[in-house]
């Protein structure tokens, strides 16, 4: 029973990615063949162009830019919510959640004219809008970590002779490192995987991997390239995720 449930859950999680992985290495694959009738790496070799490399670099810098800005801002926001008296605290909490209530397409449609009129360069504009999109997530991560974090830790450290700065650095650092990693990762994903904001605000000047995917997917007989691009978009964050979680998991086991 337990094994069956486990297998069902694994199938549920894995099934959608199976055809993508098969398509990425398929040569020809037409119905009703269950498996590709031939295999080839044409999808991946078509990725080896300077164009794709540039798009990957844009995606990477967009993801990092959003994460580097949204993570500390989320932390500051979460600290403020914790430290403020109830009324302003509730207001800040509301503002931090507000972008969640606004679908990305609606946010973009409205802000585009203002960004153009202010001569905000497209990469900067995309980063700004995505930071706002990512802030609820980063703030949420720090909020839940801070909820489990107790000031008494710091007080104990200070009574043991640590200076206030030392106490904050050492105690907080260790307690909040996990939350920071999660927040950074989520914010990175917002920038790395975005399509509609980059398309409408980036105005073609910012060509990221998802944009390449969008135009590849709009053509017939492009399944191999589309699937290979999908794999190329998913792999780097997966590696980052493994890098962030595996050491922690090992530590926990020890």
């Amino acid at each position: 029973m337990r094994v069956i449930l486990g297998c069902l859950l694994v199938v549920w999680i894995v099934a959608p990615m199976v055809p993508v992985l098969l398509w990425s290495v398929a040569g020809q694959w037409r119905a009703p063949a269950v498996l590709p009738s031939s295999y080839s790496l044409q999808g991946f070799t078509a990725l080896a162009t300077p164009d794709t490399a540039r798009a990957a670099a844009s995606s990477l810098s967009l993801g990092l830019g959003v994460a580097v800005i949204a993570t500390p801002l989320g932390y500051l926001g979460a600290l403020a919510v914790r430290a403020l008296p109830p009324m302003p605290s509730r207001f800040v909490e509301f503002v931090l959640l507000a972008p969640l209530a606004i679908p990305p397409f609606a946010l973009v449609m409205g802000i585009n004219v203002a960004l153009l009129r202010l001569y905000v360069s497209p990469p900067l504009g995309v980063t700004l809008v995505l930071v706002v999109t990512a802030l609820p997530y980063t703030a949420f991560m720090f909020r839940s970590a801070l909820a489990g974090y107790d000031h008494r830790f710091e007080e104990v450290a200070r009574s043991l002779g640590a200076s206030p700065g030392q106490a904050a650095r050492h105690v907080r650092y260790h307690l909040l490192a996990g939350a920071a990693a999660r927040a950074f990762f989520l914010a990175f994903l917002v920038g790395w995987g975005d399509y509609i904001t980059t398309l409408l605000i980036g105005g073609g000047q910012l060509r990221t991997l998802p944009l390449l995917l969008g135009s590849a997917a709009s053509a017939t007989g492009n399944e191999q390239l589309t699937a290979a691009l999908s794999v190329a978009i998913i792999l780097p964050p997966l590696i980052l995720l493994a890098g962030l979680t595996l050491p922690a998991a090992r530590r926990k086991r020890q």
Binding site: G77, A80, L128
Partner: peptide, 24 residues
């Protein structure tokens, strides 16, 4: 000090959301 802490997160959100909704 806490209010100052909130500003870097609150200002961009209020600006982007406010301008966007107004323009829409």
């Amino acid at each position: 000090r806490a209010a100052l802490l909130a500003l870097p997160a609150v200002v961009p959100i209020v600006l982007v959301v406010g301008v966007s909704l107004t323009a829409a």
